[in-house]
């Protein structure tokens, strides 16, 4: 057991569900907190033990059934991989967005109802907006993204006579910068900066969202910034003058297996 792991298990003991119930004086079955919370706590207690004592050796990416496409063509996927890697590149801290499976995350999101803007207001006419009125374009996120990928290739060929994914990293950065500044023709009156902003948002989400969404592979997005994921409590940690690094846990650890 490494120093860190030892510390983890001590901390986990200190913060186990059972201690929590004891210390907090929670009345399980009280007027409000009925069976639902009670069973949640017990489930979590078990999962805490499981996760600390069996370190999470995640499967290799190729064996990860989440790595499959529900929206992109293989080529669209590869362009996306190349683009997200420039938004959040591999460096001394660790893997970039490509290795973290951000492009898989994006594929899954665009295939979801969110990709079709189902919770957005889409009634009435779409007028040209002032800067402070928010986007007023009718195009759906999934179509905006595909138009953006096409446009990345078109512009790369115009500037450098090659597809986006074939370019040098510095050339790719130049292309993305032009997109971010709204300088490239995208589709109709849709601005390239609108696509860029979607790409940027989705990349950050793909790096840091819970791994059940397909990105943040092996929780490495979290561990790079020493983020512990979705643990249940930090009573001791928030009082500590020293930084306490905890191994990340995903929502899967709340399932009670």
């Amino acid at each position: 057991m490494s120093e860190q792991e030892k510390k983890d298990s001590v901390l986990d003991k200190r913060s186990s569900r059972r201690t929590f119930i004891k210390n907090s004086g929670l009345t399980v079955g009280g007027v409000v907190l009925g069976g639902a919370l009670g069973s949640l706590l017990i489930k979590d207690d078990q999962s805490t033990i499981t996760t600390t004592e069996t370190p999470n050796h995640a499967a290799t990416p190729t064996a990860n059934p989440n790595v499959a496409l529900m929206f992109f063509t293989p080529n669209q996927y590869q362009v996306t991989q190349a683009a997200v890697e420039r938004i959040f590149p591999e460096d001394a801290n660790g893997p970039g967005a490509k290795e973290l499976n951000a492009a898989i995350y994006i594929d899954h999101q665009l295939a979801s109802p969110w990709g079709s803007n189902v919770k957005d207001y889409r009634l009435g006419a779409f007028y040209k907006a002032e800067e402070n009125q928010g986007a007023q374009t009718k195009i759906l996120r999934k179509d905006l993204f595909l138009a953006g990928l096409d446009s990345l290739n078109r512009y790369s060929n115009e500037q450098f006579e090659a597809d986006f994914k074939e370019l040098e990293a510095t050339q790719q950065d130049e292309v993305l910068l032009a997109f971010s500044e709204g300088k490239v023709e995208l589709y109709g009156k849709v601005s390239s900066s609108q696509f860029f902003s979607l790409l940027r948002t989705l990349t950050i989400e793909g790096v840091y969202a819970d791994p059940m969404y397909g990105g943040n592979n092996e929780m490495l997005g979290w561990s790079m910034r020493k983020y512990p994921g979705s643990r249940m409590q930090y009573v001791a940690e928030i009082q500590d003058e020293k930084f306490i690094e905890l191994k990340p846990q995903s929502l899967n650890s709340h399932m009670g297996h």
């Binding site: 929670l26 009345t27 007027v31 409000v32 907190l33 249940m232 409590q233 930090y234 009573v235």
Partner: peptide, 29 residues
């Protein structure tokens, strides 16, 4: 800050500083 029973007889547990608070519901009540 600590377990509390209000005048209506509602008992609730103490905050666990879980950080999923703003924009989230509290699983502890």
């Amino acid at each position: 800050s600590e377990a509390y029973t209000n005048p209506d007889g509602i008992s609730r547990a103490a905050c666990q500083y879980c950080a999923y608070c703003e924009n989230f519901g509290c699983e502890y009540g």
